[in-house]
Every structure is written in structure tokens, then in C-alpha cells.
Amino acid sequence: MEQQFTTTSPDETIAKGKEFVSSLEAGSIVCLQGALGAGKTHFVKGMAEGLGIESNEVSSPTFTLINEYDGDKSLFHFDCYRMESPREALEIGAEEYFYGDGVTVIEWAERIESLIPPEAIWIFIEAPDKNTRKFVIRKRDS
């Protein structure tokens, strides 16, 4: 099953992230795919808000690879942009997070796609213009 929506501002993207995370359970894995500046981190900020985490605490873990946030459920936020291979994700214990008790969200997930469990939710983000973001949510194989 596929869902689509469009946002026209960062605040609207954050609101959609907050709305989206309300349907997730602990152990859920969300993979975000989109170009630099597409809105991935704003969407994660919304997910954080939905889990009772201050969105201003959320930043893209480009250099640290993973940030952990404690809220109503934990949020494990990966950024695989700088990863050269899935092996690097294994070295930081990614699979333990995938099967943990929080929600895992992965920016640039396509870089470690071979490690991603089949039940993961993939969100493809396009930026057709400066303000508009188009989101397509689906299971990877659909």
C-alpha cells in the first residue's frame, strides 16, 4: 500500500512527521530517501515531536552516524550519507537498533539497503521546487 502527500513549508513537513510517527510501534524502521535539502531532517524533527522529544534537540547525525533521543519511545536517528559500505553500519551496531525497543529512522538508507529488514517503511522525498516537498510512503518491494 502506498501513501502520498505534499508539504509546502518546513513547519508543514514537521507536522506531517509528527502525524506519521503516531502510527508506529517500537521496533519500526523508517528509511528516508531524497536529495540533500529534500526535507529528511525536518521530517525526523516532526517524528521526534510525536514521540515527546523536543525537535530543537534533533540534528542530522552526518558526522556521528547515529543520534539517540529519549522520549515516550526512543528515537534512533541514523545518517548513512558518509558510509562507504554496509559493513560500517554493522560496526556501529546498526542491527541491534533495528530490533530494539525504539523507532529507528535512517537517512540515506539506500547506502545500507542490504541490511534493511523487509518490513521497513520507505519514504521517498522529492523537492519539485524550493518550497514544495512530495512524500511517497511504501514498503520497499511495492
Results as ranks from 00 to 15, higher is better:
residue 3 Q to M: 10
residue 3 Q to H: 13
residue 3 Q to V: 06
residue 5 F to A: 00
residue 7 T to M: 01
residue 8 T to Q: 15
residue 9 S to T: 09
residue 9 S to P: 07
residue 11 D to I: 09
residue 12 E to Q: 15
residue 13 T to C: 03
residue 13 T to K: 10
residue 13 T to N: 05
residue 14 I to G: 02
residue 15 A to H: 07
residue 15 A to K: 13
residue 16 K to A: 15
residue 18 K to S: 11
residue 19 E to K: 14
residue 19 E to W: 07
residue 21 V to E: 05
residue 22 S to V: 06
residue 22 S to T: 14
residue 22 S to L: 11
residue 23 S to Y: 07
residue 24 L to T: 08
residue 25 E to P: 00
residue 25 E to C: 05
residue 26 A to Q: 10
residue 26 A to P: 08
residue 26 A to M: 04
residue 27 G to N: 12
residue 29 I to C: 12
residue 29 I to G: 01
residue 30 V to N: 06
residue 31 C to S: 09
residue 31 C to E: 06
residue 32 L to I: 00
residue 33 Q to M: 11
residue 33 Q to A: 12
residue 33 Q to W: 04
residue 33 Q to I: 14
residue 33 Q to P: 01
residue 35 A to H: 14
residue 35 A to S: 14
residue 35 A to M: 13
residue 36 L to E: 04
residue 36 L to G: 03
residue 36 L to P: 00
residue 37 G to Y: 13
residue 40 K to A: 05
residue 42 H to E: 14
residue 43 F to D: 07
residue 44 V to H: 06
residue 46 G to D: 05
residue 46 G to Q: 09
residue 48 A to I: 00
residue 48 A to W: 01
residue 48 A to L: 05
residue 49 E to N: 13
residue 51 L to C: 05
residue 51 L to G: 09
residue 55 S to F: 03
residue 55 S to V: 00
residue 60 S to R: 06
residue 62 T to P: 08
residue 62 T to G: 11
residue 64 T to L: 04
residue 64 T to W: 00
residue 65 L to E: 03
residue 68 E to V: 15
residue 69 Y to N: 05
residue 69 Y to W: 06
residue 69 Y to K: 09
residue 70 D to Y: 13
residue 73 K to F: 14
residue 73 K to P: 02
residue 74 S to A: 08
residue 76 F to M: 02
residue 77 H to N: 00
residue 77 H to P: 04
residue 79 D to Q: 08
residue 79 D to T: 04
residue 80 C to A: 12
residue 81 Y to Q: 02
residue 82 R to C: 05
residue 83 M to E: 01
residue 83 M to K: 05
residue 84 E to I: 04
residue 84 E to H: 11
residue 85 S to F: 00
residue 85 S to K: 12
residue 87 R to Q: 15
residue 87 R to N: 10
residue 92 I to G: 09
residue 92 I to F: 14
residue 93 G to E: 03
residue 96 E to K: 09
residue 97 Y to G: 05
residue 97 Y to R: 10
residue 97 Y to C: 09
residue 100 G to S: 15
residue 100 G to E: 13
residue 100 G to I: 07
residue 100 G to F: 02
residue 101 D to G: 12
residue 102 G to C: 01
residue 103 V to Q: 04
residue 104 T to S: 14
residue 105 V to H: 08
residue 105 V to G: 04
residue 106 I to G: 00
residue 109 A to S: 13
residue 109 A to M: 00
residue 109 A to V: 00
residue 110 E to V: 04
residue 110 E to R: 09
residue 112 I to S: 01
residue 112 I to F: 03
residue 113 E to S: 12
residue 113 E to M: 02
residue 114 S to Y: 01
residue 114 S to C: 12
residue 114 S to L: 07
residue 117 P to T: 02
residue 118 P to K: 15
residue 119 E to L: 08
residue 120 A to D: 06
residue 123 I to H: 00
residue 123 I to A: 02
residue 123 I to T: 00
residue 124 F to D: 12
residue 124 F to T: 15
residue 125 I to G: 10
residue 125 I to E: 09
residue 125 I to L: 11
residue 125 I to F: 08
residue 125 I to Q: 07
residue 126 E to N: 12
residue 127 A to I: 09
residue 127 A to Y: 02
residue 132 T to V: 12
residue 132 T to R: 11
residue 132 T to E: 13
residue 133 R to S: 08
residue 136 V to H: 11
residue 136 V to E: 11
residue 137 I to N: 11
residue 138 R to H: 12
residue 138 R to D: 08
residue 139 K to Q: 12
residue 140 R to M: 01
residue 141 D to W: 13
residue 141 D to N: 15
residue 142 S to W: 06
residue 142 S to N: 14
